[in-house]
Every structure is written in structure tokens, then in C-alpha cells.
Nucleic acid binder design. Structure first.
Lengths: 155, 155
DNA sequence: TATTGTTATACTCTATAACTATA
DNA sequence: TATAGTTATAGAGTATAACAATA
């Protein structure tokens, strides 16, 4: 028997109380679905959302160093080490010495990383469009815009 | 030195590439901010989002059993055990024997759990409103509605 | 046989703190 | 002193699998 069935967002007969009125709960539920579908859609490449973000950011910002990647992604340096380790093991990313600073490494995608990122990005876009397809295109933009506002709010 | 500064959603000079066009990335960023602020706002009670959800669901659905809670929350039974253990340790929840089924326990909030849930809910609502306050009330409802649609999409 | 709760174990993602080598 | 990367360790939160008690 499969222990964990797909998430049922509303179980009949259950009263969700205040949860139904909270923005945070709606975002959390959407995120669970999006994460599930992302991982399933990308399983053949071993790519998770943070790994995808790291690949895209490194590919668009050549020479980025590990500490900068951590800052951009909002994670600790130790987390960035683990993330880069995983992407190196997958053959997608490499550390290169920086001549001007022998403590530092600049990050870059490998050839394989560059090639696969194209296919991976296409798969991510397909997944993302599939998840958003119950909304009209202008609604999708509005939704993204509002979410950015929330995400950028300072505390 | 504090290792992890608050998340900076857009670091100047960084190209985020395709990430800026993805609904999934916008949801993820909003979720990070919401989670950070939730935990900070609720720290005095030791309450995290899943713990809050469990308390609300149990309080509105008296007699709920552990397996049902797991189903409603979309987690494995083993996860529900850990969640209920934590809420029992905090003095908020209790397992009660079910006479008709000696394998099962029905879950209920303690007196302290019921009392604190009122204050906790008020704090959660304050937090939620603070996070949403850059949007007009009708925009907030529209946002919640669209997110529910995403969250309820089957794969 | 099937289900309920539990335990054992492991994986991902995150954190803090201390270390090393450089700057 | 301060910074870049690393390692060690820990804690949520999740999973799967196997178990005992009960249905």
C-alpha cells in the first residue's frame, strides 16, 4: 500500500476554520502542489526547485562566487556548499579557482549543465504553465505581480 | 556575526533569468517571507504553520483521529505522530481512548490549548494581515481565490 | 486480512558554530 | 581582524517500511 496518497486539499466533512481566510494557508497549499508537481516533472534530471534556481542564477551571472550565491538565494553559506556539491555530483556545475583571491571559487555550469539546463528549463516551463492553466493569461500575470509584492515586503 | 541575514528577494545586479517569469518561483518567494514572519510572530508559543493547522483542524473537528488528521493535512501517519507528540509536550493537545475502537485515539485540545488557540489565532491573523497589507481588500480575496485554484488543481 | 498507531530509519533543506586558508 | 569556503552538528519536516494490537 502506498502510505502517502496525493494531497487532498479539502477533505469532505472537515471544517477548516480560520485557515480558509488566511493568505498564508492559501500560499502554503499552492506551494505544496507546485513542489510535488515540480519534483515529479523533473525527476529524470534529479532537479529540485533550489537546484534549478541555483543553475539559472549561475548561468545568468557568470563568475558568481559561492557566498554571493548563498546571499542571492537567501540561504546560509553551508547550505550553498551542499547545493553546489550536489550539482557537481550531477555533473552540472563546477568550481573554478579565482586568481585574484585564492580563498574563493567562481561557479559555472559545465557543458553538460548548459545543455541540460535548456531541456530542464523547458520542462519547468511546461510544468509551470500546466499548474497555472486554470487562470487566464492576464490573471496569471496579476497573480505573479501580487505574489512578488508579498515576497518583497520587508517585515 | 549573524550568518543568515533576512532574505533579500532581489539582489541588485543579479539577473534572475527565467525565474522572474515563473509562477512557482513567485509562490516560493512569498512562502519564504510568510513562513519567516509567521515563525517570528508566533515564537512565544512555539507554534509553526503545521502545528497551527493541526490545532485549528482538531478544534473544529472534535473526535478526529490521528490517521484522519494525517489525511486532512496531507502528511504520512508517522508525521502526524510527531506533530501530535510535539503539541502534547507543549500542553496543547491530548490523545483520548476511543471505546468503540481500542486501536484508535481521538484528538482534542486541552483547556490550555483552547485558551491559547484564541490568542494564537489573533496573532496569526495580525501577521497575515500585515503580510497582505500592500494589497487592497478585494485584491486580497482575489489572490486567495486564485491560489486556492492552484492548490486544488489535480496533477 | 486490513487498519491504527508506533517505531526505526533516512533524506532534504535549513540553521549555527567553529575551523582553515587566505586577505 | 575579516572574509571565503568548509566541516560538524542539529533540528524541522517529510518519507518508507515494518511491527504489535486490534478489528
Amino acid at each position: 500500500m502506498q502510505e502517502t496518497d496525493p494531497f487532498v486539499p479539502r477533505v469532505p466533512g472537515i471544517d477548516y476554520g480560520v485557515l480558509d481566510t488566511l493568505l498564508g494557508y492559501a500560499v502554503r497549499r499552492a506551494q505544496i502542489r507546485l513542489y510535488e508537481d515540480f519534483v515529479a516533472s523533473l525527476s529524470q534530471w534529479g532537479i529540485t526547485p533550489p537546484r534549478f534556481s541555483a543553475m539559472v542564477i549561475v548561468s545568468h551571472n557568470p563568475g558568481l562566487k559561492l557566498t554571493q550565491l548563498a546571499k542571492v538565494m537567501g540561504i546560509a553559506r553551508s547550505g550553498a556548499v551542499i547545493l553546489v556539491d550536489a550539482l557537481e555530483e550531477l555533473g552540472y556545475m563546477q568550481r573554478h579557482p579565482v586568481p585574484e583571491d585564492r580563498r574563493a571559487f567562481s561557479l559555472a555550469l559545465t557543458k553538460k549543465g548548459q545543455a541540460d539546463l535548456a531541456a530542464i528549463t523547458a520542462a519547468v516551463q511546461l510544468h509551470d504553465e500546466r499548474m497555472a492553466q486554470s487562470l487566464a493569461p492576464d490573471e496569471q500575470s496579476q497573480l505573479r505581480e501580487w505574489l512578488m509584492l508579498i515576497g518583497e515586503r520587508s517585515a
